[in-house]
């Protein structure tokens, strides 16, 4: 009796004929660090090129004359001479292909152009905003992990009541929109209790509410994932083996189960980054915090194209870096990936 039967008729020992359902074959975990980095580099260049291309051509779909937009929108009174001058200055009188290549060339040099609305270079502007957003996102990620760990471990050992409460909390938390959560937190902590500032002041107190707003929904997702994998790990034969050796509940969890439980959550870090950036747009706006999120929202509102492109490119780079970090973290946490 062979216990497992993956498919009715699979080649025994031979690799499956179906292609593995890996999401990113070319960014997939390679077995050595240099191989991994090389594959990543190629992938990263491709993604950045594609992101730049998609944005470039999407921007061209904007109705109206870009030169007018540069000069302050269609409503403003602009002389034909000024328009011609602007077209020449921004290369808008060139053929599309030339503009596209010029754009790629500038991006490759790290030149993100000049903001229409703010009348300053985009690259230094965004670099200045980067720190605030990164700090916010990183803190939120850490806090979310802590919440998720506590909730998952508590709800899997406290009996039925804890189970239902834990899973209910997680589902609700995962469904909370940032804008409403932020409002609720402000009402609770600033208006009623008066303990925390309603807008983001410099200093740690000003960070509490924005971080909580970003962390709670993320913790809802991570918590559900961790609980499922924690349960799977706790039910697995190796945990039974460990108990049979005399391992106690704490040992079982800390030595065996939690490590297994954290693997799927680690693999989602790339997604978590994206959702934190989405959240940052809302949170930075509500709490009036300087950062990339608020900058892109303002830029979209006033159609400041270079700023939007700049933020998109920076976020794409961040996403790529995050996937590299994710892979390295998985590589460290899961020795099975290192084999051979």
């Amino acid at each position: 009796m062979t216990g497992t039967a993956a498919g009715a008729l699979r080649p025994d020992g031979a690799p499956r004929s179906a292609r593995p359902l890996r999401a990113r074959p070319w960014l997939a975990v390679r077995r050595s660090i240099p191989g991994l980095l090389a594959a990543r580099l190629v992938g990263a260049v491709f993604v950045l090129w594609a992101v730049a291309t998609i944005t470039f051509f999407a921007i061209r779909l904007i109705p109206g004359d870009p030169a007018e937009a540069i000069l302050g929108g269609p409503g403003s009174q602009t002389s034909p001479e000024a328009l011609t001058a602007v077209r020449a200055q921004y290369g808008l009188d060139q053929p599309v292909l030339v503009q596209y290549l010029a754009q790629l060339g500038r991006l490759a040099r790290g030149d993100l152009g000049r903001s229409y609305a703010l009348r300053q270079d985009v690259a230094p502007l965004l670099v200045g905003q980067l720190g605030g957003t990164l700090l916010l996102a990183a803190l939120a990620l850490v806090v979310a992990w802590l919440f998720a760990l506590v909730l998952a471990t508590w709800s899997t050992r406290g009996g039925r009541f804890a189970w239902y409460l834990g899973s209910g909390l997680e589902i609700v938390a995962a469904a909370l929109p940032h804008f409403w959560l932020a409002t609720a937190l402000i009402v609770l902590f600033s208006v009623w209790l008066g303990v925390l500032p309603p807008i983001s002041t410099p200093g740690p107190a000003g960070l509490v509410l924005p971080v909580l707003t970003l962390a709670i929904p993320l913790a809802g997702f991570l918590g559900q994932i961790m609980r499922e994998s924690l349960l799977t790990a706790l039910e697995s034969p190796f945990v039974l083996s460990a108990r049979a050796r005399g391992e106690g509940e704490r040992g079982v969890r800390w030595i065996h189960a939690l490590r297994h439980a954290s693997l799927p959550a680690i693999s989602l870090s790339g997604w978590a980054f994206g959702s934190l950036i989405s959240g940052a747009v809302v949170v930075e706006t509500i709490f009036a915090r300087p950062g990339l999120g608020r900058t892109i929202l303002n830029a979209v509102t006033v159609r400041d194209v270079p700023v939007v492109i700049g933020v998109v490119m920076i976020v794409a780079i961040g996403y790529i870096l995050m996937t590299v970090i994710t892979d390295l973290a998985q590589w460290i946490a899961d020795p099975r990936l290192r084999r051979r």
């Binding site: 992101v51 994206g274 959702s275 950036i277 989405s278 747009v281 939007v308 976020v315 794409a316």
Partner: peptide, 13 residues
Amino acid sequence: EVLFAFPGLLLAL
């Protein structure tokens, strides 16, 4: 894969 480099809200924006 490229689209996933745009976090949801950014794509919408």
